[in-house]
Write a protein that binds this DNA or RNA. Structure first.
Length: 579
RNA sequence: UGGCCCAUGGUGUAAUUGGCAACACUACAGUUUUUGGUACUGUCAUUCUAGGUUCGAGUCCUGGUGGGCCAACCA
């Protein structure tokens, strides 16, 4: 009693006093107090258009957009397109669609790093003139070697005038790919290897998705990113932890040029159990036909989750619930699934569908009679109203809902049992017919005429409630039952020992494909109630007692296709497995 | 091997910046229920370790241990 009261007091004081801040918000508040930036928070989301966005990117999007929104600021969308070899306009469009679908707006602030190519080039010339950059003709192998030893390139001390000339020659296309490159002159003995004369421009005679053939020299990430942030006046440049060591170089470039300096802040990426987010491996899954494509409903891509039927709100809630920190997150997939159920429980209309049909005949129900029963659409939301569902003498029920010899906690149909049929009558099971193999083929019942839903005068207490469809009016449907793509919680991070040719013990990564779940997709042919006629692609429903399902893009009027978004929680299977 | 970062229940995040370790998810046990769903209630921690500073340490200091990242003409 006193403990409970104390908890309530704590809750109240927490709500009224101060919500907790993540570490980035703490930094922003400090900046606001000190006046580090004399402007509103401006963040950016900087994807490289070389693939589809996945759940990890969704976190980056939420973190940057949410932070800006919280402090009354804005967020730019900037495509970090400095590598023409991998980038495509198709990806630009797919990424824009995904961000919009998540519900974030960049308004008129859509940028491309490639829009700044001239400016970035001019900045590089500025550093060359200051003797802080040089054109290096060393091979990558040589420089790799020199770097390890902390030795300087023999081209390092050529004159600024010569370097300026050579860089211009690079730009005009005089040299072939890889012939030379532009390096920053920093410190070949720096503890941070990135500061050991990093390369900032390379030659690529390749067409760029945005600038076409205007350029044959392209800036590297470390040169382009900080400067783009600076040009746009970004205040807080949020990125993932692996860029931590880049911050020193980010700051160096901006300080040397004497330009406006944003604050880079790194946070940890999001990992999920039973999931892979390496772009390379996702591409590999597609290439090896394990999944259909980027938007396969089993993919952790935003487009995959959208097609599966995950609401955008569920994804955002999941990410916000997970929070932001610098520790490696490895979040349970079930946490995401829970957010999906949460959202859909509120928004999805309930309907009845039978996936593994078993024929049931009500012997005392008139053969030609069809009743239209009014069934409520969503007990969580009365405004969603009710619909009519036909009831007749012959029904389909779920095979799993009938047992010849039931478990002691069984509440469903079995010989001699009474069970409520959702929205209809209480039925009494009188018998069944089985084939030679002992498989049940038909179930026989009688109904209590005075037990009609809403006007039950039978006085019978039925323990269980079943879903059903009337056979004559049911609509056939292909239902795709999706499950997790991997059987192992961390398919990406297993190591195994082996002996090499010299019989030396070694370790190597286990191929993640070892853990592919062979049952990640099962297709069943089921039946839905006839109210599901004019639904839109992407619309979600709850198939009562089964789970949430969405209309797949493959669905046609004459061949409906549903995806299982996520199953309902199933405490029965736990009870059953206990013995 | 060098450098940087991280360490709080099964999982993730908090802790008014040195003052009774809280919230969400999972799991388990119940209550309600015409969905074995939802909702509701309850249970689950010597804050990685050893020492130090302090009236008082999850928080500060030192050493250790464990994990992650970097050493691409990728981002």
């Amino acid at each position: 009693m006193s403990k409970k009261r104390q908890q309530e007091m704590n809750k109240m004081s927490n709500e009224s006093e101060k919500e907790s801040l993540n570490f980035i918000e703490h930094i922003v508040e400090k900046h606001n107090e000190s006046g580090r930036f004399n402007q509103k928070v401006l963040t950016r989301f900087p994807p490289e258009p070389n693939g589809f966005l996945h759940i990890g990117h969704a976190k980056a999007i939420c973190v940057s957009f949410d932070l800006a929104q919280k402090y009354g600021g804005q967020t730019n969308l900037r495509f970090d397109d400095t590598n023409p070899s991998t980038e495509k306009t198709d990806f630009v469009e797919a990424i824009k669609k995904d961000i919009q679908w998540l519900g974030f707006e960049w308004e008129d602030r859509l940028f491309f790093t490639s829009d700044y190519f001239q400016q970035l080039y001019d900045y590089a010339v500025q550093l060359i003139k200051a003797g802080k950059a040089y054109v290096d003709f060393s091979s990558p192998e040589t420089m790799d070697y020199e770097k390890r030893l902390g030795r300087e390139s023999r081209f390092r001390d050529s004159s600024p005038a010569l370097n300026e000339y050579l860089f211009e020659q690079m730009k005009t296309g005089r040299f072939p790919d890889g012939f030379c490159a532009l390096r920053l002159k920093i410190d070949m003995n720096a503890d941070n290897w990135l500061m050991r004369d990093p390369l900032i421009y390379r030659i690529k005679h390749e067409s760029h998705h945005n600038t076409g053939n205007d350029w044959c020299v392209y800036p590297m990430y470390d040169w382009a990113h900080g400067l783009s942030d600076s040009i746009e006046g970004i205040t807080h440049s949020l990125c993932s932890l692996e860029f931590e060591v880049h911050r020193e170089l980010y700051d160096w470039c901006l300080e040397e040029l004497g330009v406006y300096q944003p604050q880079q802040i790194e946070f940890s990426r999001l990992n999920m159990t039973y999931t892979i987010t390496s772009k390379r491996k996702l591409k590999d899954l597609i290439a090896s036909n394990i999944v259909e494509g980027w938007d396969d409903p089993r993919m952790p891509t935003i487009s995959g989750m959208r097609r599966r039927g995950y609401p955008a709100l569920a994804i955002k809630n999941f990410i916000r619930r997970a929070g932001v920190s610098k520790r490696d997150q490895y979040i349970d997939l079930s946490s995401l699934e829970n957010c999906v159920r949460d959202a859909l429980n509120q928004s999805a209309a309930r309907v009845m569908a039978v996936l593994n049909p078993l024929k049931l005949i009500i012997s005392n129900y008139p053969e030609d009679k069809v009743e239209q029963l009014s069934v409520i659409n969503n007990p969580e939301d009365e405004s969603m109203g009710a619909r009519n569902v036909p009831f007749s003498r012959e029904l389909y029920i779920e095979q799993e809902d009938f047992a010849i010899e039931p478990h002691k906690k069984w509440r469903r149909l079995a010989p001699g049992r009474d069970v409520r049929f959702k929205g209809a009558y209480i039925l009494h099971c009188t018998g069944f017919k089985a084939n030679d193999e002992g498989e049940v083929e038909e179930v026989y019942c009688t109904y209590y005429e005075n037990s009609k839903s809403g006007q039950d005068e039978s006085g019978i207490k039925a323990k269980g409630t079943l879903h059903w469809v009337s056979i004559a009016q049911a609509i056939p449907a292909e239902v795709r039952i999706y499950d997790r793509l991997f059987t192992d919680p961390s398919p990406d991070s297993h190591k195994e020992s082996y002996r090499d040719e010299n019989d030396k013990k070694r370790k190597r990564a286990v191929d993640y494909k070892t853990f592919i779940n062979p049952d990640s997709l099962k297709v069943v042919n089921g039946y839905t109630e006839p109210s599901l006629v004019a639904e839109k692609i992407g619309q979600q429903f709850q198939f009562m007692r089964l789970g949430y399902f969405s209309v797949d893009k493959d669905s046609l009027p004459e061949h409906r296709v549903f995806n299982r978004v996520v199953a309902l929680k199933d405490s029965w299977s736990k009870i059953q497995n206990r013995r």
